[in-house]
Write a protein that binds this DNA or RNA. Structure first.
Lengths: 154, 154
DNA sequence: TCTGAAATGTGTCGGGG
DNA sequence: CCCCGACACATTTCAGA
């Protein structure tokens, strides 16, 4: 497990909030110079702790107002099923899970009609249960590493 | 609905893949100069299409190997419940949904013991069903806007 | 809405503590 | 592991089309 000191923990919290913050500004906030920050960030990237940077896009504004959660009970949950799911561009996440279902899939859709198309694709693999998200009390957010005492040696 | 031209669609796909890409490099890839890119990106931000930028952090590497999905059936699903869930730092997303459950919660946890603590907190609000993610055929990913023909006037 | 050029700000690399 | 100074590079602004 990768152990963080307090500076790296704060760096990660800042970069999770604003992934485009400059090294200089990061340094100003935590009391380091830009080169020192750059080196720490580079090491976090090399270690795989920072996996990348992403712009967060509002899919609703782009015409995908429906967020659906589909649970699948696939009798034979093999690689073929996984790959078929991954090939669907509307799918933004898919997990294999414990319990009576085999997969949990999340997809962004344009219309209710698209739900049928999505289900038709996974239908062949097993029974499905679909929930539509009506609101998000906690929209997808980063963990607050400071609040969770992340990175402390256990 | 916000209508994208092809350039903005490609810009968003690039920024979803690498949120720290410089305006100059973005411009080189799509055939514009840096100032033109900067202006387009600024407008997308102002319009709320780009909601922000985030570093993607590997929580497993930081000691949170468990991703849990908890479905809650809360008889009275009011604001108080939402706020209690939102206050838990391990919760990375919570949705209200249609169907027999009221909420779907995702949380990152350190140990199986933490599952008990999490459930104890939401337990008071209703019955729970918990699934543990064993693998992710599709890890959380951005939508490919080009593949989905996003932003086209319908 | 874009380009091109000038000014400003930031990233990067060396040397040194 | 950090700071400082110097250079290279990116961003911003603005005039012009």
């Amino acid at each position: 497990m990768y152990v963080l000191d307090d500076i790296n923990r704060d760096l990660l919290d800042l970069l999770q909030t604003d992934g485009r913050m400059s090294f200089k500004e990061l340094g100003d906030r935590i009391g380091l110079t830009a080169p020192a920050v750059a080196e720490r960030v580079r090491k976090l990237e090399d270690a795989g702790v920072i996996k990348g940077y992403r712009a967060v896009v509002d899919y609703e504004a782009l015409g995908f107002p429906i967020l659906s959660i589909v649970r699948v009970k696939a009798p034979i949950a093999g690689r073929a099923v996984d790959e078929k799911i991954a090939a669907l561009p509307n799918v933004i996440e898919a997990n294999r899970v414990t319990g009576s279902d085999s997969h949990v899939i999340r997809a962004r859709l344009r219309t209710t009609r698209d739900i049928e198309d999505l289900l038709a694709d996974v239908w062949e693999d097993g029974e499905t249960i679909t929930n539509l998200v009506t609101s998000s009390p906690v929209p997808r957010r980063p963990m607050n590493l400071k609040a969770t005492n992340a990175g402390r040696a256990s």
